Simulated scan of single mutants.
Amino acid sequence: MNWLKLLTKQPSLKMIAERTGFAVTTISKALRDAPNISQKTKQYVRSIADELGYQPDRAGVSLRTGKTNKIVLLMPLEHEISDFSRRLILGMARILERTPYELVFHPILPDHTELDEIKKIVRNRSADGLVLAQTAPNDPRILYAQEHNFPVVTHGRTCIETAHAFYDFDNQMFAYLAGMRLAELGCKSIGLLAPEKDLTYYQHLLAGLHQVVEETSCEISSFRAQAQPGGDYVRWLREETLCAMQNGTMPQGVICSGEMAAMAVIDGVSSAGGKVGHDVKIISRKTSSLLEYLHPRIEWVEEDLIQAGEHLAQFLLQRIKGADPEELQFISPPALSW
């Protein structure tokens, strides 16, 4: 056998069969992770497939099975996202790496609606499943996917009665623990800074902070910064913080839903001549290493987005196979820096 000549051709199942001595049907089953093929055989077949640079013919697979072997992650492009998308993608890619599925990142441009994009994907069956983030209580995207029996998993919960698969961070516990910490540090007024007040997670944050008010002498500050729709939230929040510091309406403590908001507040406080940690105490959600390089340092509650991505990919693969969405729900506890 002239292996040099063979390797100049497009790698195929037949080529892997000739290298391994297994039948083409065995090769196909091994690459599809069939249960009746031993793990040792699967690993050997995959190693030869990787060595040859084999990639399945997605068009042929789609014609045979009606499946695209594509999973789409939709994400609006916004300032507050920061490193959010990259970490979710990394977690999902770790799970999908050894499956036939390809992860497609679908950014939603500011002048497009996410629901319209979802309708196109579902109508054309151009993917086998969807991953959505930034969920609303009565989210029309999820309702549409459910109506059309299309597999979907979300980063975040809703109030929809029909169960759907999700991975969520315990925002209520985050706000409660952060609020109690600020109360412990002597803060009497606490501001809650989150740009998307129409999303479910904000309701959970507010519920957690109300628990703090019930258990302490703290009050929720009226400084709940909200930029105009379509505006630059981070720039706007920095200016609002500067003004609040100058006119004496800045709360003693603030809970920031994201790192970019925390940076805006730090800059606003410092620009007004204030001292972070003294005049204003800040606790932020942490989803990357960004806060570890800020000065002055602030305290945080961490959400592991790579782990979130892994769960989302696992849940969606199971949904595609027909698993009950009620069995595919997980709420991640926050990790404290103090």
Rank of each mutant, 00 (worst) to 15 (best):
R141Y: 04
S332N: 08
L103C: 11
I266L: 15
L294V: 14
P140A: 15
E215C: 10
E102W: 02
P100W: 04
K70M: 11
G208E: 14
D170L: 05
M15K: 01
L312R: 00
K321M: 08
F223W: 07
L328S: 08
A183F: 10
Y144E: 00
K286W: 04
V152C: 11
K5S: 04
S47V: 01
A59W: 01
R58Q: 08
K119R: 13
D128H: 06
Q252W: 06
E78W: 00
D168N: 13
R285M: 09
L199A: 01
L74Y: 04
P56H: 01
T68L: 07
D83T: 14
S222P: 01
V122K: 00
K40Y: 04
G258D: 12
F166V: 07
A34C: 06
H164M: 05
D232I: 10
S222C: 00
G309M: 13
I108D: 09
K67I: 04
L294E: 07
I283R: 01
T158C: 06
F330T: 12
L185G: 13
V269A: 05
V234R: 03
K188G: 08
F105A: 15
K119F: 06
L143F: 00
E51G: 02
L177T: 12
T249N: 12
R235K: 05
T158G: 13
A30S: 12
A136W: 01
R157S: 05
P140L: 15
P76C: 07
A23W: 03
E310P: 03
M263A: 14
N36H: 06
T25I: 13
Y233T: 14
L31Q: 03
M260E: 14
L336H: 01
P325Y: 13
T158A: 12
R235W: 05
K197S: 09
V152E: 11
S28P: 13
T241K: 05
F330P: 00
K286V: 03
G230F: 07
H112Q: 14
E299A: 09
I160A: 02
